[in-house]
């Protein structure tokens, strides 16, 4: 099918470039349509975005409640932005607020009247402009302000996009027939904006001088991180003593309480009667702002004075099983 059609369609272009381009320009695309409209061509990207928290930024029930039913004006702009520019706090959009943080806000720029993106493309339906700021963390910084500050301090070589918009390899940007026939596959990045979940290797745990230490060694921003949400990290340590006694120690870490685990800054917790400790079983769980369930990050056992015990991954008590990625 594809092989047969290409010669036919190419013969159309022989009629001249000008009329061809005009035939395919779809003017309404530059008049801030709903995200759904972009799916006419960018069907795959739309599907990913639709599953993302960005698509729910306005409709989220917890957000609706905390913004006092959209009456706290301070709260609105980042959850339904008009235009996203690097490191700038956006302004509130007038139309289609239900779309939350959507395609047009992130890609359409008033100044050029074009869709900006990371690639050099030929896109007859709408003008496009290559703009390398899309590949940098500063693109996310206008909204994820606290996280961006933390990320800068961590001096990571990886950008937000490297982790939260993972490369999908080369794929078609558009799915619409017959346009996709004119375009080669290009580097694609997941618009699922997944929250991820820290891995065992991201967190170092040890016992030394009577204290239990935790250190975020792998995530280049606080764990957990937030601007307005209230995500949490839970530590449950079951301490077994040589005399048979068992004690459970619990701690909660959160951006709101200002005790989230900053990259490279160990946090120590005193263990009473440390000399008598025979082993410590540790569980670390996290709860995202918008989720009820806690998810297991690590489960580990430490024996004696800092001797590393076996490492294993299991289910949290009464919690859900988890994969490496919160997409499941």
């Amino acid at each position: 099918m594809r092989a047969f059609l290409i010669p036919v369609l190419f013969s159309l272009t022989l009629l001249g470039c000008g009329p061809f381009e005009e035939v395919f320009v779809e003017k309404d695309l530059l008049e801030r349509p709903q995200a759904k409209r972009c799916s006419d061509c960018h069907a795959d990207i739309y599907k990913e975005w639709k599953e993302s928290r960005h698509a729910l930024a306005w409709k989220s029930e917890s957000y609706r409640r905390e913004s006092e039913n959209y009456t706290k004006t301070k709260c609105l702009a980042c959850h339904a932005p008009h235009q996203v520019d690097p490191e700038k706090k956006p302004k509130l959009r007038a139309e289609f607020k239900d779309d939350g943080v959507a395609c047009v806000a992130c890609h359409f720029k008033e100044e050029t009247g074009a869709m900006h993106g990371p690639l050099k493309v030929w896109s007859p339906p709408h003008p496009s402009k290559q703009d390398l700021s899309y590949t940098k963390s500063s693109f996310c910084a206008g909204c994820h302000r606290e996280t961006y500050k933390e990320w800068k301090l961590a001096k990571s070589s990886k950008s937000c996009q490297d982790c939260h918009m993972k490369s999908l390899g080369k794929k078609d940007l558009i799915q619409k027939f017959p346009f996709y026939l004119f375009h080669r596959a290009k580097p694609r990045h997941s618009h699922r904006f997944t929250s991820l979940i820290a891995s065992e290797e991201d967190i170092k745990v040890w016992f030394e001088g009577g204290r239990l230490y935790l250190e975020n060694v792998g995530v280049p921003h606080n764990l957990p991180t937030a601007d307005q949400g209230d995500p949490r990290l839970y530590l449950i340590a079951r301490i077994a003593y040589k005399d048979g006694k068992v004690r459970t120690l619990r701690r909660m870490f959160s951006p709101q309480a200002e005790n989230a685990l900053a990259p490279g800054r160990p946090v120590g917790i005193t263990i009473t009667n440390a000399e008598g400790v025979s082993s410590i079983k540790i569980k670390l769980l996290r709860k995202l702002s918008w989720k009820k369930e806690k998810e297991l990050i690590l489960s580990r056992e430490i024996h004696g004075e800092g001797l590393p015990g076996q490492v294993r991954r299991g289910n949290p008590e009464g919690g859900e099983g988890v994969g490496k990625d919160s997409e499941g």
Binding site: D230, R251, M252, S254, Q256, A257, E258, N259
Partner: peptide
């Protein structure tokens, strides 16, 4: 820890 978490309530 309890005083710390209390600060989270202010916002």
């Amino acid at each position: 820890e309890r005083v710390r978490a209390l600060k989270g309530m202010c916002s």
